[in-house]
């Protein structure tokens, strides 16, 4: 690793001023960034740790909306939303392994937008609002392709607001070595329609499967998905773990499973 300074502000304002310095970078739980730094794939001069900012931690449930502080670790989310939003608890409780879940944060995951990460699918499927120090961004506008988001330089995710669905499920087909999803489907059913977000599959990062959403909004059943053709595998990730066509097949198979399991 190259050397750098680590600063630990205790407020969002202090963090913003630290991040305004040249080559400063935010550090969430570090479970992705620290391995990246070890490979010398990033070269910040200052890391601004967000782990000391108490106002960015914790979970609250209010009027059908769950608000998760940007610096809240996965393990805390898994415990806090177990009753209010079991599918989200299941997602958070199966990221990485227990030690990783105690450090990694929702804000870090969404800011990184790894194409195989779990959280982006929950944010997109619930139509979450990504709240930053400067503005509120709708999930539909936030994800802009693999490792690309609407965040500006130095902008911090302070919290994420997720509307609680009537029914939901997260089905992760796990790549056993990395424990990332080979394909993951987050299905969320609301009074005004169904949203289906797919992670792990596309070269463009997390996306909504529009045909399945339309079919399921009209008829929430496994048969409704059965009647669809799987999305095209042409623009899906092809690597040694699975071809694009295999991932496309999984998108449909796992969506059916999600409908069957949604609760």
């Amino acid at each position: 690793m190259y050397n750098f300074d680590v600063v630990r502000p205790t407020s969002v304002d202090e963090a913003l001023s630290a991040l305004s310095q040249e080559d400063a970078q935010a550090l969430g739980g570090g479970q992705t960034l620290i391995p990246t730094l070890k490979q010398r794939l990033a070269m910040p001069t200052t890391l601004v740790s967000l782990s000391g900012i108490d106002s960015m931690k914790g979970v609250s449930v209010d009027g059908g909306v769950i608000t998760v502080g940007g610096a809240t670790p996965h393990a805390v989310v898994a415990g806090e939303v177990a009753d209010a939003f079991p599918a989200l608890a299941h997602l958070a409780g199966n990221i990485g392994d227990p030690a990783v879940r105690n450090r990694g944060t929702i804000g870090g995951s969404l800011a990184n937008n790894d194409p195989s990460a779990c959280y982006p699918s929950a944010a997109l499927a619930t139509g979450a609002t990504i709240v930053t120090n400067a503005r509120e961004i709708a999930a539909d506008d936030y994800f802009q392709g693999m490792f690309t988001t609407a965040l500006d330089e130095g902008e911090i995710i302070t919290s994420v607001k997720l509307p609680v669905p009537e029914k939901a499920a997260y089905i992760k087909f796990e790549q056993p070595a990395s424990r990332f999803s080979l394909v993951g489907i987050f299905l969320a059913k609301y009074a005004d329609g169904v949203r289906v977000a797919v992670t792990g599959a596309s070269n463009n990062g997390v996306f909504r499967w529009a045909e399945a959403e339309a079919a399921l909004s009209a008829d929430f059943s496994v048969a409704a998905v059965e009647g669809l053709s799987a999305p095209s595998g042409d623009d899906m990730i092809s690597d040694l773990h699975g071809s694009g066509d295999y991932r496309a097949h999984l998108v449909k198979a796992l969506t059916k499973k999600a409908v069957a399991q949604a609760s």
Binding site: V6, R8, G30, I34, S49, A99
Partner: peptide, 19 residues
């Protein structure tokens, strides 16, 4: 490298001493 930080497990190779 698993240790406990404030009672929770963490990988000490994936955390800075400053944190």
């Amino acid at each position: 490298c698993t240790i406990h930080v404030n009672g929770k497990s963490a990988k000490a190779c994936t955390m800075f001493a400053a944190e």
